[in-house]
Amino acid sequence: MSTLDATAALKNPPSPDEELVARFNGQKDRTAFDELVRRHRNRVYSLALRMVKNEDEALEIVQETFLAVFRKLPEFRGEAQFGSWIHRIAANFALMHLRRKKVSSQFEDEIEDANGHFDAEGRWEIFPTGMWGRRADQLALDSELRTKLVDAVEKLPETYRAVFMLRDWDGLSYDEIAETLETTVPAIKSRLHRARLALREDLAQYFEGRGA
C-alpha cells in the first residue's frame, strides 16, 4: 500500500458490516450488498469447499447463501454478528447438499478415540513424539504441508468435518452448531475433540516422516 493509499484508508476506514446492512436496508443501496458479498465470499467459499469437497457444488452453496442473505437481510436485526449469521446460513446450505447426496451421519464412519494410546491407569503407552507442536509459529506452510493439512481435513467423516469447520474455522458457538446440526453441545464437543485428535495424528505421522 502506498503512503497516499494508507493516508486515504486512515481518513476513510472501511464501513463496518452493520453500516452496510443499514445502507442496504434503509436506502436499498445495492453497492452496499455487493461490498458485503465481496467481503465474505472467500470465507463462505472456503467453508463450502471443505464441506462438500467439490468446486462446482461449493459455488452453488455460495450462490444460494448470498441469494438467501439478499432476501433475508431486511429481517436481520443484528442479534448476532453479521459474519456469524451469514456463515450459519452457508453451513445450513452445505449440510442440505450433503443430505441430498444421501450421506447420512448415522451410517458414517466413526473416528476412533485415543484410548489405544493409554494403559489401564491412563498413562501413555505410545508417547507422542516430536517437537513440531512447539514450533507451529515458525513452520512455513509450504505447498506440501498445506496439501497434507487439506487432505487431513477432507478425509474427516462428514459430521466431524462439519463440526471442525463450524467451530475451528468459523468460530460459531457450541449452541449455534448444536442447533444447526440438530444435536447436543456435549456431542459437538466430543466430535470436535475427535476431529482434532485425528488431525494431530495425521500431522504427527507426516512430521515423523520428515524427522521433525
Binding site: 472467500n42 507422542p128 513424539t129 504441508l145 493439512l149 487439506v150 475451528d168 474455522w169 504427527a204
Partner: peptide, 28 residues
Amino acid sequence: PCLDFLDQYRASTKLAREAIETEMPEAL
C-alpha cells in the same frame, strides 16, 4: 509427553485453519 501432546493438538488446529483458507477463483 502430555505437554508435547498439548502443543501438537493446538498446533494441528492452528495449521489446519491456515491451510484451508481459500480464495475464491476469479472465474467462480
